[in-house]
Simulated assay, not measured.
Amino acid sequence: MRDKPLRNEAISELVLASSSPRRKELVAMLDLSLPVYILSTDTDETVEADWTPSEVVEKLSLRKANAALKLLQQKQEHESSLIIGADTIVVLDGEVLGKPVDDMEAMTMLGRLQGRSHQVYTGIACVLSSSGEAIISHRMTKVKMKALSSDQIARYVATGEPRDKAGAYGIQGLGSILVDEIDGCYFNVVGLPLSLLSDMLGTYDISVF
């Protein structure tokens, strides 16, 4: 982690800047004493060609959190919120694979991933609504996918599950049967590394237990 906040302050709520149902479920698993609110943002996810995978997820997670901050400021509901932004990408041979635009692209992505290892990066940004101060970090997990036939890939894509997933698969769903092994945090592949998030929350004196 880096960019530790200059001071801690009483935080009355967490704001998750995400529309992802998976991230909502993961935050709920922490059973925090603070209320957690969901605030979806329409964020520009364009990136520079020279950004590293870690830069991509850290910069986009911060962009999402800052977009939520602007919405809170417009509503004047930002006195003591901690905003959490997150972004997940799949990387194969140094190339970032985002969410497929259609089923054809999903099949192409899975065809490239099958039988090979790739990396999943998730960035997390925590932003104090009162000051805009932020801490940002990321995790990386290695994933090896099974060798798959074209027919298996087509049947999986036909379920619709790949459509909103980075890399065109969801390890927490039917996509779990496509994965041979992982090296690192499982929840990072789902979309929110809980161990990392709990450490970051601890910076603000928010304890999971």
Score class of each variant (00 low, 15 high):
Leu34Lys: 07
Pro35Trp: 05
Pro35Ala: 03
Val36Tyr: 10
Val36Asn: 10
Ile38Trp: 10
Leu39Pro: 02
Ser40His: 08
Thr41Glu: 13
Asp42His: 13
Asp42Leu: 13
Asp42Val: 07
Thr43Asn: 10
Asp44Asn: 12
Glu45Thr: 15
Thr46Asn: 12
Val47Pro: 13
Glu48Cys: 15
Glu48Tyr: 15
Glu48Phe: 07
Asp50Arg: 12
Asp50Tyr: 14
Asp50Cys: 08
Trp51Leu: 15
Ser54Gly: 08
Ser54Leu: 10
Ser54Ala: 11
Ser54Tyr: 05
Glu55Val: 10
Glu55His: 08
Glu58Arg: 14
Lys59Tyr: 08
Lys59Gly: 14
Leu60Cys: 06
Leu62Ala: 15
Leu62Ser: 11
Leu62Asp: 11
Arg63Lys: 01
Ala65Phe: 01
Asn66Ile: 14
Asn66Glu: 04
Asn66Trp: 07
Ala67Ile: 11
Ala67Asn: 10
Ala68Gln: 12
Leu69Tyr: 11
Leu71Tyr: 06
Leu71Ser: 03
Leu72Lys: 02
Leu72Ile: 10
Leu72Phe: 03
Gln73Phe: 04
Gln73Ser: 01
Gln74Leu: 13
Gln76Met: 13
Gln76Gly: 14
Glu77Met: 07
His78Met: 05
His78Trp: 11
Glu79Pro: 10
Glu79Ser: 11
Ser81Glu: 00
Ile83Gly: 00
Ile84Gly: 00
Ile84Asn: 00
Gly85Gln: 02
Gly85Phe: 06
Gly85Lys: 04
Ala86Ile: 11
Ala86Gln: 09
Asp87Glu: 15
Thr88Lys: 02
Ile89Val: 02
Ile89Gly: 03
Ile89Ala: 00
Val91Pro: 02
Leu92Thr: 04
Asp93Val: 08
Gly94Trp: 08
Glu95His: 04
Glu95Thr: 04
Val96Tyr: 08
Leu97Gly: 03
Leu97Gln: 05
Lys99Phe: 02
Pro100Leu: 04
Pro100His: 06
Asp102Ala: 02
Asp102Trp: 02
Asp103Pro: 10
Asp103Arg: 09
Asp103Lys: 14
Met104Tyr: 11
Met107Val: 07
Met107Ser: 13
Met107Gly: 12
Met107Cys: 13
Thr108Leu: 10
Met109Val: 09
Met109Ala: 00
Met109Leu: 06
Met109Ile: 05
Leu110Arg: 04
Leu110Ile: 09
Gly111Trp: 12
